[in-house]
């Protein structure tokens, strides 16, 4: 616990840790202000398949729709922001030349790596919580509340989530998002144990995430076949399922387990690599 607190203090003492928070604040504020200014266009585009057949009234463009909309970009920009810190957890010690001092101290390597890993996860959670709080608070101020309309683009398919139910679902989807993003943190952390500088783990993690996201979205049967095995598929599935009607619990459980297994394997590999790390040369 003491080690974890020390690592957390170290992490949050670095100014680069706050870059992510600043970037998220910028993205959320810009997106919500632009959506406030061009809301009609967005709603009209979204509801176009229905406007021919239905009169639509009420506060469609509300905080929950905006939050779900911004969350859709979660798998692109948040991973990058997570890698900035998680990819730096161990490699920064090597870069700064402090790894020898760290490893000759009484705490075992396992305790050190576990504390660092927990710090990376803690940072990930705090970042997503910050993202959630900002989205919801600013959204409530700018757009107000209302029912959430979930629409699958290009399809005559719409689901209403009542206003009374949405906050709980959004809360659960953010919890799921933390779990999903922890895999990105784990990958970055593993790479961090392998590298001597921070650039490699950051670029390496982003490369992995982007490659899987791109392969998963290519409209080709071969990749469609492979898509269920990509961790990025489960990352997206996990939080999005909380905004489906009805909630597909089996998909959520399966994705959560798959991501959990990824986390365990990645952490065990990182621990193994860290234990074998040669600090004499």
């Amino acid at each position: 616990m003491k080690l974890f607190l020390l690592e957390t203090f170290k992490t949050f003492s670095r100014w680069r840790t706050y870059i992510s928070f600043a970037v998220i604040a910028l993205i959320v504020i810009l997106t919500e202000v632009v959506m406030k200014l061009s809301g009609d266009e967005i709603v009209n585009r979204m509801l176009k398949p229905f406007q021919r057949d239905f009169f639509i009234s009420g506060n469609v463009l509300n905080v929950w729709l905006i939050t779900a909309f911004i969350m859709n970009s979660l798998h692109i920009h948040i991973p990058f922001l997570i890698t900035l810190v998680a990819g730096d957890m161990v490699s920064s010690e090597a870069t700064a030349g402090t790894i020898r001092f760290l490893l000759i101290r009484p705490p075992s390597r396992i305790r050190i790596i576990t504390a660092k890993y927990l710090t990376a996860l803690f940072y990930t959670a705090i970042l997503v919580i910050f993202f959630a709080v900002l989205c919801v608070c600013l959204g409530l101020t700018l757009f107000g509340s209302g029912d959430l309309i979930v629409h699958h683009y290009g399809q005559f398919d719409v689901a209403f989530i009542p206003e009374s139910e949405v906050p709980v679902r959004i809360f659960l989807s953010f919890i799921a998002a933390i779990w999903a993003m922890s895999v990105v943190a784990s990958i970055a952390f593993l790479f961090s144990t392998l590298a001597e500088n921070s650039i490699g783990p950051i670029i390496g993690t982003m490369a992995v995430v982007i490659v899987f996201l791109v392969l998963g979205s290519l409209p080709l049967d071969f990749f469609r076949m492979l898509k269920p095995y990509f961790f990025t598929t489960h990352m997206i599935n996990l939080w999005q399922q909380f905004l489906e009607v009805p909630i597909q619990w089996h998909v959520i459980v399966r994705s959560a387990i798959v991501l959990g297994i990824h986390n365990i394997c990645l952490f065990l590999t990182a621990m193994f690599m860290f234990k074998r790390k040669d600090i004499k040369s």
């Binding site: 021919r52 057949d53 239905f54 009169f55 639509i56 009234s57 009420g58 506060n59 469609v60 009542p162």
Partner: peptide, 14 residues
């Protein structure tokens, strides 16, 4: 024709 509701509503035109 005008349709008003406190909540989001879809009302058939035809």
């Amino acid at each position: 024709v005008k349709v008003e509701s406190k909540r989001v509503i879809f009302f058939p035109k035809e």
